[in-house]
């Protein structure tokens, strides 16, 4: 049962995404800002993190950099999520160490495909 950490500050998005993933059989844990995301990644040890980029306290890019810079968490796959559908966002996310990138609103099929690819490679 893959473990997914959803880091998202928007309540409705968080609720929606976590429920839809649970329906698909994932074990889901939630975090509401970048710092909580880092903490939960260390303590809960997920297989993959869905990381929103515009987050309070610590934004997604900073969080990704810290996670990938820490030996304990660097192997956890990260998919960056952002609603800014700009090419530069994608580059910025990959540069910060994210393994993949997707735009919001979520196209669930596409997201599941990306998760599948990352977890099976």
């Amino acid at each position: 049962m893959p473990r997914v950490l959803v880091v998202e500050d928007n309540e409705m998005n968080r609720d929606m995404l976590s429920r839809r993933l649970q329906r698909k059989g994932f074990e889901v844990e939630l975090a509401v800002d970048g710092q909580e995301g880092i903490d939960k990644a260390s303590s809960w040890n997920p297989d993959i993190i869905l990381l929103d980029m515009s987050l309070p306290v610590k934004d997604g890019w900073t969080a990704a950099r810290e996670l990938k810079g820490n030996v304990a968490t660097q192997s956890i796959k990260i998919i960056a999520l952002t609603a800014h559908a700009m090419e530069s966002d994608r580059a910025k996310a990959l540069e910060a160490g994210c393994d993949d990138y997707d735009t919001k609103p979520i196209d669930l099929k596409r997201l599941l495909m990306k998760i599948d690819i990352l977890l099976n490679n």
Partner: peptide, 24 residues
């Protein structure tokens, strides 16, 4: 512009996402 579109996409995404769940 980016902020406006971000917020708008997000809200519409919520409508679509929950509707898809209800549809299932």
């Amino acid at each position: 512009r980016a902020i406006f579109v971000h917020d708008l996409r997000n809200a519409i995404g919520v409508v679509a996402g929950y509707s898809e769940m209800l549809l299932e």
